[in-house]
Amino acid sequence: MEILLLVQTLNGLQLGILLFLIAAGLTLVFGIMDFINLAHGVQYMIGAYLAATVTLATGSFFLGLLIALPLAFVIGIGFERLVLRHLYDRDHLDQVLATFGIILFLNELVKIIWGPTPIAYPGPALLSGTIPVMDGFGYPVYRLAIIGAGIGVAILLWFLVSRTRAGMLVRAGASNARMVSALGVDIQRLFMLVFGFGAMLAGFAGMMAGPILSVEPGMGDNVLILAFVVIVIGGIGSIRGALVGALVVGLVDTLGRSFLSDILKLFVSPSAANDVGPALASMLIYILMAAILFFRPAGLLPVKSGR
């Protein structure tokens, strides 16, 4: 039982870290431009496909990462310039529709290029194997590496956002974009870079997740909606909120799925618990979101906005 709890906690952390990588870019785009980007999830998918292709072609996971990361950045910027840029001053409905169009297009394009069946690629040999975490039981090194990489990115992001000039502009933009623009900052360029960076982070999450999940068309869709839940819980525009929200969602979802049925058995009959447990577990994070919204409509760690 303790082993299962430990393993599932680590799995929850790992899901939370992946969600954080996706939600971080998304929350900045929301926060600065008040722009709803549904196409963020497909960036995650594209990251995984790019990494898979390069890794399978070269046999090196790290080479795959090295080539796929800048490509994800460029693709993100490409979509910003081609489509999204023209939608900043439109209402949210137009943004939803156009980015929905991008999703339909890319999910189908991926099917044409790579086929509809999932593809698998190996993680780096360096990080294969397991680490003994409790006597007689090991946890995969690669999964720990994902957690480590995510924490690394979180620290890097914290440094970029709170200690650099670009980060200062991003924070200023999140609380009052018009004022920043009036002070002579090219907000359009700033946003393009933030967008590309966010796309790269989502792509990075996809690349890291690729070896342990299946790489398939539409893999970004569910992740996107989970990232929405993360952002709603954490508060739009807040990176710290995204981190807290992502860990909460990752842990609650993973632990709920593995333990809720057992917990329910303490209160109701086993067969009823087995019937209701899985359904309730899959609803848990959304119920949590509703509860948080009810008491704190702006999320747990909202950005103080001057707009």
């Binding site: 023209h86 189908e108 394009l109």
Partner: peptide, 14 residues
Amino acid sequence: WKVIFGPLLILLVL
């Protein structure tokens, strides 16, 4: 067909 429909949708919006 969604490869065609997606861009059509974007054009419709724009």
